[in-house]
């Protein structure tokens, strides 16, 4: 541990939540996964629901999410996290259930499960990390890769006639009657992280109401896959991804 100033007479105003394990995360430097993991675990800690929460990890970079999240967890097959979460929630309807998936998992191989889970209005929280690339397998095109984006499988840039268009799956699920709360957030600034935390808090507060699916997209980065420094990656994300995936609420519960 490093301390440049004495902490005598000071009080802790920010520390690692106990719901996050001590295991150092395997993510690349600057990756947004770590922030989302931490914020999610903070909310679970502060709401005191660790003993009533079950999470589902995906396949992708966050496949080892269960190594860091100190809650009961199941590891799903690629794309099936929301189906697994459905199975858990249906037999444990009073527990808090969330799935955590990346863009390849949720919006390519798992599109069917995603649409139908939300369409049934499963009372779960789906967290969707969109960084426009397949990180774990080495930077291939994702369904959410933007037009012109160079990836290891679109070496000349994504072309719509060849590769189709970026899939705005969050806009798609917003249209479904089973969606209760849909929002798109990011984690690139302290203010953005605060907003994400509020969105996660709201989603867990909604869950016992059994009104439908809460869906949070986090527009995030992939410094390694994009071949940029973390600072450059966040700037690229703001410039190129935010116009296509604008930050903000897409569907908020109607006031009673």
């Amino acid at each position: 541990m490093e301390s440049a100033a004495t902490t005598n007479h000071m009080e802790i105003v920010y520390e690692r939540p106990v719901t996050l394990t001590d295991t150092p995360m395997h993510y690349c430097p600057g990756c947004g996964h770590g922030v989302v993991h931490r914020v999610l675990m903070e909310v679970i800690n502060e709401m005191g629901i660790q003993d009533r929460t079950v999470g589902v990890a995906p396949v992708g970079c966050s496949v080892f999410a269960y190594n860091y999240m100190n809650v009961d967890m199941q590891e799903a097959a690629h794309g099936r996290a929301s189906a697994v979460a459905t199975g858990i929630k249906r037999v444990l309807p009073e527990k808090y259930v969330y799935s955590y998936q990346g863009d390849g998992d949720l919006a390519a191989i798992g599109t069917g499960e995603t649409i139908h889970t939300v369409n049934r209005g499963e009372n779960i929280l789906m967290i969707f990390i969109n960084n426009a690339i397949y990180g774990m397998t080495g930077g291939q095109m994702a369904p959410t890769s933007i037009l012109g984006q160079v990836t290891s499988t679109t070496p000349y840039g994504r072309k719509s006639d060849l590769n189709g268009f970026p899939l705005k799956i969050t806009d798609l699920v917003t249209q479904l009657p089973g969606a209760y709360y849909v929002t798109r957030q990011s984690v690139h600034t302290a203010a953005a992280v605060r907003k994400l935390k509020k969105a996660i808090e709201a989603s867990f507060k909604y869950q016992p109401l059994k009104k439908g699916t809460c869906f949070i997209e986090v527009v995030s980065n992939c410094p390694s896959g994009w071949k940029m420094t973390p600072i450059e990656a966040n700037a690229w994300m703001e410039k190129n991804m935010f116009p296509l995936y604008p930050i903000g609420d897409l569907k908020v519960p109607k006031q009673n």
Binding site: E2, A5, M10, E11, I12, G34, R38, A190
Partner: peptide
């Protein structure tokens, strides 16, 4: 590391840290 002793304990650094490596202290 801290390079200037002018931290206000605003926690912005901790919020954006992907590795949860930062604990923040503040004077009461």
């Amino acid at each position: 590391q801290l390079v200037q002793d002018n931290c206000t304990g605003c926690i912005n650094c901790a919020l954006v840290c992907p590795d949860c490596a930062i604990t923040v202290y503040q004077e009461p």
